[in-house]
């Protein structure tokens, strides 16, 4: 299914023989993408200016972007970003550690896999936001509230991928390792872990996006400090451009996290012949 696109027979051989024109780079893709962004901004600029939506509900793009650049100069903004990123990072870290430990233990025993299966299938779909009232009761507006939601939501993403990864271990490789007298720990280190690593990285990438969503949600709904709370405050305080600027900022953070995670994934898996496609879970 995922075979590479066919290069038409003969092109490779022909390339070396027939004369080439001077290579013209045509970065049409990037240009089109840039044009898309500009077009979007233009529409956004025009909609309030023409009056399709009132400017007090949707300020023009230029105003919001100016506001965003203004924010970039404010300590308060960077403090809020810092709070959000701290919750994101701690939550993600805790979720990953927990999921890796539990995933490897449960994944490598078929008894544990079978006995936990029903519980996992029941707990996993529970929306993490259902825990919001509980988090408020237990921790109030402290960062622990955010962490509780982030850890719960991100944990499952990583845990499930690790289970898949450990289950994917090649029997032949495992038997080879055994026959060469590798102990239990060595087998996990040299056989199970490398097999599961691509899955783990996929899980971490998905979890990183989920963690950001939950960090912002917690701040927005519960009011723990961070960008989400700033958005809620801006909205209720009528600072409309400020609110849109903060929304843009969360989007930029989301994009950065995606890029970072893809970069880390590529770096860690560069040895891997085929970066595996995601499992549908």
């Amino acid at each position: 299914m995922s075979a590479p696109a066919v290069t038409t027979d003969g092109r490779g051989a022909a390339a070396s023989r027939s004369r080439r024109r001077p290579a013209k780079k045509r970065p049409t893709k990037q240009l089109l993408g840039l044009a898309g962004i500009l077009a979007f901004l233009l529409v956004w600029e025009l909609v309030p200016r023409v009056g399709i939506v009132e400017a007090r509900f949707l300020p023009p793009a230029s105003e919001v972007i100016a506001m965003l650049f203004n924010d970039f100069g404010l300590t308060a903004f960077w403090l809020a970003v810092g709070e959000t990123m701290l919750a994101w990072f701690l939550g993600l870290l805790m979720a990953v550690v927990l999921a890796v430990v539990l995933g490897f233990i449960i994944g490598s025993s078929s008894f544990l896999r079978k006995i936990t299966n029903s519980t996992v299938e029941f707990l996993r779909p529970i929306p993490s936001v259902a825990l919001i009232p509980l988090a408020v009761l237990l921790f109030g507006v402290k960062i622990e509230s955010s962490l509780m939601l982030i850890v719960y939501a991100s944990f499952w993403q990583v845990f499930i991928q690790v289970l898949y990864g450990v289950a994917d271990v090649d029997n032949v490789a495992m038997q080879t390792a055994k026959s060469y007298g590798l102990g239990r720990f060595a087998r996990v280190r040299y056989v199970v872990f490398p097999t599961a690593l691509p899955y783990l990285m996929t899980g971490v990438r998905l979890a990183a996006a989920v963690a950001l969503i939950l960090a912002i949600t917690a701040e927005l709904v519960i009011g723990s400090p961070g960008l989400g709370r700033e958005i809620a405050l801006a909205q209720s305080g009528g600072a409309i451009s400020g609110m849109y600027a903060l929304v843009l900022a969360t989007g930029l953070i989301g994009v950065l996290i995606n890029l970072l995670m893809r970069f880390i994934e590529r770096k860690t898996l560069s040895w891997h012949s085929s970066i595996r496609s995601e499992v549908i879970v």
């Binding site: 022909a14 027939s18 004369r19 024109r21 290579a23 780079k25 045509r26």
Partner: peptide, 12 residues
């Protein structure tokens, strides 16, 4: 003839 970014390639 294929027109590619790297120049034209005459296949047939």
């Amino acid at each position: 003839v294929y027109h590619t970014d790297g120049g034209d390639i005459e296949a047939v």
